[in-house]
Design a protein around this nucleic acid. Structure first.
Lengths: 203, 203
DNA sequence: GAAATATTTTGAACGACGTTCAGAAATTTT
DNA sequence: AAAATTTCTGAACGTCGTTCAAAATATTTC
């Protein structure tokens, strides 16, 4: 049974990620505890460290799942054809909707920090590409003058701007916009960025 | 010596905030430890809990200091007269410069989370007002049609957008823009937001 | 198939952490 | 200066992530 060993290991990993996801979902990232996760996954405390290097890597696997779901939501929300403004509005709206509907899992994506000096593994860095993938095409139509590198950079900036508004709002910070106003403010921001960006291309 | 008691208490608090600030400055928020802070402040471990409710409240006092310095930097960078675009660019540039020059203390402002369910004390909520205070006037000139409430909301959104770009960049995230490009991208964002915002006022 | 060997799983134990609190030290009052 | 009060102290507690010797299980050998 050469396959059993790997299959059991994969099953353990799945149960641990399931349990960690459930844990973050109802207590937040800070409420994730090794003892509770392993109890819910039905394994010993030490087993966690045979499946993953440490708790941080387990969180990264939960985040990978969340990013995949978020990526699918963004892709689904993106109209096949339409004006660049409409596509960007649809993407921003979908991002807001996903963050609101999955607050704790979405928060974990950006709250989580690796210990200082520890670099994020490559396999997980790539998972983040979905955050900007769909932005590039419509933005490119607004700014046909930009080189691919500059375009990608501007897509990152565009994402980060929207993300910032969502993050400060959902964190309930003093400077964050009230959650009830979030969708409207993001729409206004995207509108302003879109119009302003379009103008810049003509200068 | 009625004054001594209060003076000594105030001195202890100051030493603790000094030590915590130094600690965050060279090891980051996650590197802040009660035992090290009290050792550096020259008091017993338990003394921390006679001066502050807990470590979180000590962090809030460090953050209050940082916000005051940041507020001063933003105010100083804000030209007395000039086009709204120029003022907003100056503010954004100063924000980027402060965040870069004080990365760990600035990060602590937004990394720190109170335990779930614990609300931020009012005295510290107000400290955050400096983040948007200087934005309101120039933004109001671009959008004279907005009511004071809507204007304040838009100022929060404008801040959050710039902040998002800075935060993802300085965190070194995959989707963040490289630090070397940060100032340029923020300038482009402010430019686009400003032009777009101005156009919206004419619709 | 049983003994020997290799692998996997286990949970008690470790060190570090934030926080508490009974007693020691210092101060104020009598 | 003795008594009463306040302040300060650091050992001790509970919880955390992580480790690792030993137990349990699986595999190989004869």
């Amino acid at each position: 049974m050469a396959t059993t060993r790997e299959a059991k290991r994969a099953d353990l990993k799945r149960r641990l990620v399931d349990a960690a996801e459930a844990q973050i979902l109802d207590r937040g990232l800070a409420g994730l505890k090794a003892r509770e996760v392993t109890a819910q996954a039905g394994c010993a405390l030490g087993a966690l460290y045979t499946a993953f290097e440490d708790l941080d890597m387990l969180v990264l696997h939960v985040n990978a799942r969340t990013l995949a779901r978020l990526g699918a939501a963004l892709h689904a929300a993106c109209p096949k054809d339409g004006a660049p403004e409409d596509i960007l509005q649809a993407l921003a709206g979908a991002y807001v909707a996903f963050a609101c509907a999955n607050q704790r899992l979405w928060s974990a994506l950006f709250e989580h920090r690796l210990p200082e000096g520890v670099e994020m593994p490559d396999w997980h860095r790539q998972d983040h590409a979905v955050l900007i993938a769909e932005i590039i095409a419509p933005l490119g139509r607004l700014r046909p003058d930009l080189e691919p590198d500059a375009l990608r950079l501007r897509a990152q900036t565009t994402f980060a701007a929207v993300h910032g508004v969502v993050q400060l709002s959902l964190q309930g910070r003093f400077v964050g916009v009230p959650q009830a106003r979030l969708a409207g403010e993001v729409a206004a921001l995207v509108s302003a960025m879109t119009r302003g960006t379009h103008l810049a291309a003509r200068d």
